[in-house]
């Protein structure tokens, strides 16, 4: 399945992509609509709980002390009412960071599509809920649409940092969020595909360079960018902007870039920010060993 085929199916049948995804899931897994729907509802509940947990009290902190408490700082900052990029955007950022702080602290999350990129979709969905007054059913539909586009990316390129870099994780999540946000705002499937294409294009080449190999630095804040990029890309598509390079070709470009990335920048914790003096010191402090661990058992 390509984005082009998915869009054509939706336009031909005059059926939203969320509905096509539900029907496909029912047919493939011989499941009832209720089963499929309630599983997605549970995933939504997990996302909502993580956002809430990361923003309450002093927030959550990882065992290593590398990340934590910053969603709460954003919440307090927003309360003063002087954000530069607007309250909605900073709420999206807060929700994304809250979710990834919970993930880094070994809390329960719903991987969308991965745990490293778990904050991006919650960053998008809960602010457009407010902005567009989405009801519960529409939020569940958002996740089916996001999942439909995510499946295309995962099957035609990939969603693992170790094979494709962070572009495959946060880039994919951001594209899924952008495409689903367009559907919720009343855009058609073609506009969703444009939003997806723009969102991925904007993050192409993003490397996976976790400090000490941990899903903390810079992963947590990259989800903030993933969420912001999704909202911006969705707005651009709804305004009629197009990516010019079609979504399927963008996905293919991402796949090729991932294969061209050196191993040091594909989730080995050996390049990029992980290899900076500060990154190396953090690893020494946490694990008592240097970045090049190849010869140790």
């Amino acid at each position: 399945m390509s984005v082009k085929e998915l869009v054509k199916d939706s336009m031909d049948k005059q059926t939203p992509i969320s509905e096509l995804m539900i029907q496909q899931e029912m047919a493939k897994n011989k499941a009832s609509r209720e089963e499929v729907w309630s599983t997605m509802e549970r995933n939504l509940d997990v996302m909502e709980a993580a956002v809430k947990r990361g923003s309450e009290g002093n927030g959550v902190f990882s065992k290593t002390g590398l990340t934590g408490g910053e969603a709460v700082l954003l919440k307090k900052y927003r309360e003063k009412g002087h954000t530069l990029s607007g309250d909605l955007m900073m709420e999206a950022v807060q929700n994304a960071i809250a979710t990834n702080e919970v993930n880094a602290s070994m809390g329960v999350v719903c991987a969308t599509p991965t745990a490293g990129s778990t904050g991006t979709l919650p960053g998008v969905i809960f602010v457009i809920k407010k902005r567009l007054n989405l009801d519960h059913d529409q939020m569940v539909r958002f996740l089916f649409t996001a999942g439909a586009f995510g499946m295309v990316i995962a099957n035609n390129a990939g969603i693992a940092g170790a094979t494709g870099g962070c572009q495959a994780e946060v880039g994919s999540a951001s594209a899924m969020g952008a495409a689903a946000a367009v559907e919720m705002a009343g855009g058609n499937a073609e506009q969703s595909a444009e939003a997806l294409a723009m969102a991925i294009s904007n993050l192409l080449g993003l490397v996976c360079d976790p400090v000490a190999g941990l899903v903390e630095l810079p992963c947590v804040k990259r989800n903030a960018i993933g969420a912001g990029n999704a909202l911006i890309s969705a707005d651009m598509a709804l305004a009629g902007l197009t990516n010019k390079i079609p979504a399927d070709e963008v996905i293919s470009a991402m796949d090729k870039i991932g294969k061209d990335l050196p191993k040091a920048l594909r989730e080995t914790g050996q390049g990029g920010l992980a290899a900076t003096p500060t990154g190396v010191n953090m690893k020494m402090r946490i694990f008592g060993k240097t970045v090049d661990v190849g010869d140790e058992n």
Binding site: V36, M40, R42, N43, V46, S62, G107, A111, P113, I159
Partner: peptide, 17 residues
């Protein structure tokens, strides 16, 4: 093959892979 491979799993952090 399933939408829940993408939206999910519900899991204990920090890394899906």
């Amino acid at each position: 093959r399933s939408v829940f491979d993408i939206i999910g799993p519900v899991m204990i952090g920090p890394s899906s892979s």
